[in-house]
Design a protein around this nucleic acid. Structure first.
Length: 680
DNA sequence: GGTTATTATTTTTTT
DNA sequence: AATAATAACC
């Protein structure tokens, strides 16, 4: 018998209300994950439900893996194995893999990431006869919005969203049409399509929705405040034969509206699912009272939120502080100094996190951490597969799997250079257009279009065909390794990056790619298909070796975590540095100038503050380098509304916070440093 | 056709 | 400051 008696009253109610719709409003640190993992264990152990009927959807693959671990801890490997724990995208992709042919795509479709989308939009704009130059990004954003609102490219011009007088709308219409047509022709889909097509499938073939709905009798959705309209429709499909839907979320932590997250999903849940049980978790087990008071004081300024009061019985604690620093480097230095102090007093670095609003804040912090030789791990920021050299190799793999993917083909057509330049490409594009065939087939069928180039082109086509065979017959990692060697990619990198350090870094990345392919084949064995590998790379669904070893012995590495506020959601640390509490960073400049949602920025600050268990250190710099210029900076408006007794102001730029002894050492070190520099 | 120099442009956050 | 896009050169 599995016991849920370790939970408080509300948590127990959450874990023990199994049938029908349930809304769990879980404040920060209120034991949300604990409640839902217990809920799953409770369902299996005490209600005798088949684990195979349980589906839990999380926001990131990382969160899914973490939850899986915790459920396994409660249920054991055998029973937890049946439970499906996945993201919306992974789940939808699984469905599409089985059913996409019904929508006129073939099964070997590939996935476009944002960079691929951008190149397609560029193509679209090139073929557009507008006088003005348009911003690709905002056009793509507009298309994304239309897609998630369910408006097709044909419908767009007939909706209220469309204004004939606006140049941008006309351009968008052209691009949207161009984009949709090409995507289909290339047999590729984008991130939005993964959900969109699944929803379309559910609508056109209700029996498919029913099939999955019957399979997943009990559905849980984590971080419900960050779901968008499409995901909501997908949920409707999945619950078409029952209403056992349990969603968990906190409207105060909704921070993804830029990606279409719709906060009304959680605010209106009770309307969407009548007769639902509402459970509020308001007891905070994470932070001490001083930290919680500060966080509550920040978030209470938001107008659009459900009133709630987070409380804690943990009344004793260190007062949060705000450090005033001179500039970006001084800020980083001061933080790293504090970290080394903590380290030398015997603290474990896994208990510390440094949180930032923007990834541009990373380099300064990383520099200081490296100088002081503090081990750290980066979360968020540029994705591994987005690095140029990785994308290049993945592009080769993509066209082996889906030769219609013209964007991938053009990406590597002359990388490394093999004498197929812009002129040749143009000729073949014309040929392909004229014969209405795919670009790759044009190369394959007519290598001698330009006799001077015949050799280059046949060599290229042969290479692709050869490796297509090779990769299908040998373990994936061998194929990739051989490909990198055959292409002389290392030499290419040496030529491209003049600095040796940079070049070596890129080569290490390639080695990492081979390693991750190796882990992939090890894990999936015979069914380790090229396509799944590329897919998993793009969806960030590749547990790296750090994580797997950590789960093996369950020892957290002795390193500081450096990450964006967005990726910190759901995590907690004893000591947290919230870096850059200043205007134009938090709230971000874009949200100020575009009159965008300041409330979301405030929620972001709230998320950051509520990560801390024991100590909160906020910092800001009086001067920061932006576009290579030093600009004056000011403390965040979010601090202005807070009464002074809730945090302590410390001026790190003067000696006022140091003891006499510390000032002495500081000055001595300063002069020693100076002298050593003069010596050299 | 390829390489290099010059100029423009950028910075939110992520599946 | 760093990178991408473009122009000018070989």
């Amino acid at each position: 018998m599995f016991s849920i008696s370790g939970l408080n009253n509300e948590q127990r109610k959450a874990a023990d209300t199994i049938e029908g719709p349930v809304l769990i409003l879980a404040g920060a640190g209120s034991g949300k994950t604990r409640s839902i993992t217990y809920r799953m264990a409770n369902m299996v152990e005490n209600y005798g439900l088949d684990p195979k009927t349980i589906l839990a959807v999380t926001f990131t693959n990382k969160a899914a893996r973490e939850m899986k671990e915790r459920v396994t801890g409660l249920l054991g490997k055998k029973k937890s194995k049946g439970i499906t724990l996945s993201t919306f995208h992974s789940l939808a992709l699984k469905i599409l893999r089985a059913e996409i042919e019904k929508l006129g795509y073939s099964k070997n479709f590939t996935i476009f990431d944002t960079a691929d989308q951008m190149s397609l939009i560029r193509e679209a704009l090139n073929s557009y006869q507008g006088e003005k130059s348009f911003d690709r990004k905002s056009i793509l954003a507009q298309i994304g919005k239309l897609k998630s609102a369910g408006i097709s490219s044909e419908e767009f011009s007939r909706t209220d969203n469309f204004n004939t007088d606006l140049d941008y709308d006309l351009a968008t219409e052209h691009c949207y049409q161009f984009y949709t047509d090409k995507m289909k022709f290339y047999n590729v889909i984008d991130f939005d399509d993964i959900i969109l097509l699944t929803v379309k499938l559910f609508k056109l073939y209700p029996e498919i929705a029913e099939k999955y709905s019957r399979r997943y009798q009990y559905i849980m959705v984590d971080e419900y405040q960050d779901t968008n309209q499409l995901q909501f429709s997908m949920i409707l499909g999945l619950t078409s034969t029952h209403n056992n839907l349990c969603v968990v979320g906190d409207d105060d932590q909704s921070i993804y509206s830029f990606r279409g997250a719709d906060i009304t999903n959680i605010l209106n849940f009770e309307k969407h699912f009548s007769g639902c049980t509402v459970i509020k978790l308001e007891e905070n087990y994470r932070s001490t009272e001083p930290i919680l008071n500060l966080a509550n004081n920040v978030i209470k300024e938001n107008k659009r939120r459900k009133e709630k009061s987070l409380r804690t019985s943990n009344t004793e604690g260190i007062s949060p502080v705000l450090w005033k620093c001179a500039d970006t480097d001084h800020e980083a230095q001061t933080i790293v100094e504090e970290i080394t102090k903590f380290q030398s007093s015997g603290g474990h670095l896994s208990n510390m996190a440094v949180l930032v609003r923007s990834t541009t804040q990373f380099p300064a912090l990383e520099d200081q951490l490296r100088i002081s030789m503090v081990p750290y791990v980066l979360v968020g920021g540029q994705k591994f597969y987005e690095r140029k050299e990785i994308k290049d190799v993945l592009a080769y793999l993509s066209i082996m799997h889906n030769p219609k993917d013209e964007i991938a083909l053009r990406r590597i057509l002359n990388v490394p250079s093999r004498g197929i330049g812009a002129k040749t490409l143009e000729k073949y594009l014309d040929l392909a257009k004229e014969k209405n065939i795919h670009l790759y087939n044009a190369f394959k069928d007519c290598p001698g279009l330009d006799p001077k180039k015949e050799k280059c082109i046949s060599a290229f086509v042969d290479l692709i065909e050869e490796f297509k065979q090779k990769i299908a017959s040998a373990p994936l990692e061998h194929g990739i390794k051989d490909l990198i060697e055959r292409l002389n990619f290392h030499t290419y990198i040496d030529g491209f990056y003049k600095q040796k350090k940079q070049a070596n870094r890129r080569k290490e990345d390639l080695a990492r790619l081979v390693e991750s392919a190796e882990r992939f084949t090890k894990f999936f064995g015979e069914s380790a298909k090229l396509r799944n590998f590329v897919e998993k790379m793009i969806l960030q669904d590749t547990p790296d070796k750090d994580e797997s070893s950590a789960s093996d012995d369950n020892i957290r590495k002795n390193e500081v975590t450096l990450m964006t506020l967005h990726s910190s959601k759901g995590l907690e640390y004893d000591h947290v540095f919230l870096v850059g509490m200043e205007e134009e960073l938090l709230p971000h400049k874009k949200s100020i100038t575009q009159g965008d949602d300041i409330e979301e920025e405030r929620r972001l600050a709230y998320v950051g503050l509520t990560r801390a268990k024991l100590r909160m250190v906020m910092t800001y710099a009086c001067e920061r380098k932006i576009y290579g210029r030093d600009l004056k900076r000011f403390p965040s408006r979010f601090l202005a509304t807070i009464s002074n007794d809730l945090y302590q102001n410390i001026d790190k730029n003067s000696f006022s916070d140091l003891s006499e002894e510390e000032v002495k050492t500081y000055k001595k070190n300063f002069f020693d440093d100076l002298i050593s520099k003069i010596d050299v």
